[in-house]
Write a protein that binds this DNA or RNA. Structure first.
Length: 335
DNA sequence: CCGATTTGACCCTG
DNA sequence: CAGGGTCAAATCGG
């Protein structure tokens, strides 16, 4: 067991080092490739060991179940210590940077007559209380054009050139809007002065997450700074949370009474409620407040939950070399 | 065939 | 009236 923990720890450390050194390695693809390979190798090895140790099969479900059991044990050992298992409700998390909710309103006749719609579309403007603005770094490898994943599936319904902005703004709504009347929407736009950063404005809250067919995972952190981000996504849909995942390998970040380094893996979120200026992509942003830790259980859910998504999350986390290559080849989908 | 994306037009807000 | 948000037809892709 300790061996596995050590492996994971090493992998995380390597990933972090790689991220820190990314700017220096940008024009040294071979080193970059080797580093990525090493990380993948470690995690693949870890997966195999976990499979061997926890229950015979080699499928990711086994890993997930066993891991969850193990984590429950760990958490029991931790006792009810503060910060260990407190799961903020989804609503609390989603409203961290703002408040209010959004309901469909009955329309007045004129609009529906013109549009043949049954409900008047919601139109709220800038000072909308329901608006949460965050900034997330764009992926620095692979396709840097796509907005980062946040664990939900979004459907794009519009794109507009914005006056004074170099980049268009994309409009997304929750894929389950129709099915569950989920009012969640988001706008994604690159920052003019920092093309490696997306500004994402969330409106409305997800009402679809309680359903068994809706994404089973709960909302992930709204944002984090670039040094905490592991970029893995190369698609625009349904990678449940992985790029938002941040694994801290620095015990100082969390409760140092933990003796198990793996227990120090948390997810961090930071709500950007300000609209401060933005530094470059590799600089820590000075806009934050309100750090909060995601509990380990939730992290594991994200990693191992085999529930709703067609993708095996385990496969995502412990991607093989072939998956790896998608990172490099998955780019250039854009206009 | 069905769901997602694109894109021009429509319409509301400031 | 300008700019921004949304609709919906056309198109794309699995």
């Amino acid at each position: 067991m300790e061996e596995i923990v050590s492996l994971i720890y090493n992998g995380c450390r390597l990933a972090r080092d790689l991220e820190v050194n990314l700017p220096n390695l940008a024009n040294q693809p071979e080193i970059l490739w080797n580093n990525c390979h090493e990380i993948v190798r470690i995690f693949t090895d870890t997966r195999d060991r976990i499979n061997a140790q926890f229950g015979g099969g080699n499928q990711s479900e086994n890993v997930g179940g066993a891991m969850q059991q193990w984590l429950q044990l760990v958490q029991q050992q931790e006792g009810g210590s503060e910060g260990a298992v407190m799961v903020p409700s989804e609503t609390e998390r989603w409203t961290a940077g703002g408040r209010g909710e959004q309901q469909l309103q009955p329309l007045d006749g004129a609009v529906s007559a013109a549009r043949g719609a049954t409900f008047q579309r919601m139109r709220r403007r800038k000072d909308d209380a329901d608006k949460r603005s965050i900034r997330v770094p764009a992926p620095q490898m692979g396709n840097t054009e796509i907005p980062p994943e946040d664990g939900f599936t979004w459907r794009k319904y519009g794109q507009k050139e914005i006056l004074g902005s170099r980049f268009p703004r994309g409009y997304y709504r929750c894929t389950h809007q129709k099915l569950y009347q989920c009012p969640a929407k988001k706008q994604v736009q690159r920052l003019d002065n920092d093309p490696f950063t997306f500004e994402v404005i969330y409106r409305g809250e997800h009402t679809c997450t309680g359903s068994s067919t809706a994404p089973s995972m709960s909302a992930l952190p709204l944002t984090m700074n670039s040094t905490q981000l592991l970029h893995t996504s190369s698609t625009t849909t349904s990678l449940p949370g992985s790029p938002w995942l941040s694994i801290s390998t620095q015990p100082a970040d969390v409760d140092t009474t933990n003796t198990n380094p793996f227990v120090n893996m948390h997810m961090f979120g930071r709500v950007d409620s300000s609209s401060g200026t933005v530094a470059g992509p590799s600089t820590a942003r000075d806009v934050g407040n309100q750090y909060y830790d995601e509990p380990l259980t939730e992290f594991v859910d994200v990693m191992f939950n085999s529930g709703s998504s067609s993708n095996s999350n385990m496969d995502l986390i412990f991607s093989t070399a072939t998956e790896d290559q998608k990172w490099d080849s998955g780019e250039n989908k854009q206009d």
